[in-house]
């Protein structure tokens, strides 16, 4: 009844006991829920070596089942209507506003259609390419699909793969960084000249004393 997580990974560095434990946890958190698709989360974690949770696509970090906020147990009648409408989005192109999904989840269903999402469960990596690398909900410069592959939060502007963010932001903030560099260069040139001045005074004193 409970699947034993199989870990096959080329870089042992990232898969340690803690991560191992996280797998068990995440299986536990999502597998309970018949309607959620933990395959994608498992893939994201395996691909990135980072721990993730259901909040990648769902409103609630523990998935859609339960009675917390954004979970099925706490929906109002209007929200249920929305949920049922969202469930009919089998083909792509339908605007989705599901109360249990976050914006990334909604967009996934809209772009792929539910049928395709269900199909991709067998091959979770395809979800990223099917979704495409254009949309960037949090505007941090890393496309949502890439954030899914990286195991980072697609809805948080201040969360992403550190190196990718560095590359994006160094371009984004280039004027600021260049201006700061100019300021620092001027400052350092001034300091160097000051040292030069004191050196000259030292030489002048030496000449005088001889």
């Amino acid at each position: 009844m409970f699947p034993t997580p199989m870990l096959k990974c080329n870089s042992p560095s990232v898969f340690l006991q803690v991560t191992f434990a996280s797998f068990i946890m995440s299986f536990g958190l999502c597998i309970q829920v018949g309607i959620a698709y933990p395959e994608f989360q498992q893939f994201s974690e395996k691909n990135s070596g980072r721990t993730t949770n259901c909040a990648s696509c769902h409103e609630n970090a523990t998935g859609p089942a339960g009675n917390g906020s954004g979970q099925i147990g706490s929906l109002t009648i209007e929200e249920f209507a929305k949920l049922n409408e969202a469930r009919t989005a089998f083909e792509p192109g339908k605007d989705v506003d599901s109360p249990i999904l976050n914006r990334f989840g909604d967009l996934l269903i809209k772009k792929l259609g539910k049928r395709k999402v269900l199909e991709d469960r067998k091959e979770p990596a395809k979800l990223a390419s099917d979704y495409g690398f254009q949309s960037d909900i949090d505007q941090d410069g890393i496309p949502d699909a890439q954030e899914f592959l990286d195991g980072t939060d697609p809805q948080n502007q201040h969360h992403g793969d550190a190196w990718r963010l560095f590359v994006v932001n160094i371009n984004r903030y280039a004027p600021h960084i260049i201006a700061a560099a100019i300021g620092v260069l001027l400052l350092d040139w001034g300091f160097a000249r000051m040292i030069g001045g004191f050196m000259a005074i030292k030489r002048a004193r030496k000449k005088r004393s001889t």
Partner: peptide, 27 residues
Amino acid sequence: SICVPFDSFLPYPLLAPYDPLAATPPG
């Protein structure tokens, strides 16, 4: 500091607000 948010090094479930009723997240 302007390029790399310090939080980026942590998995995002750890950045969620603390919930005294939930299990300790891994990591």
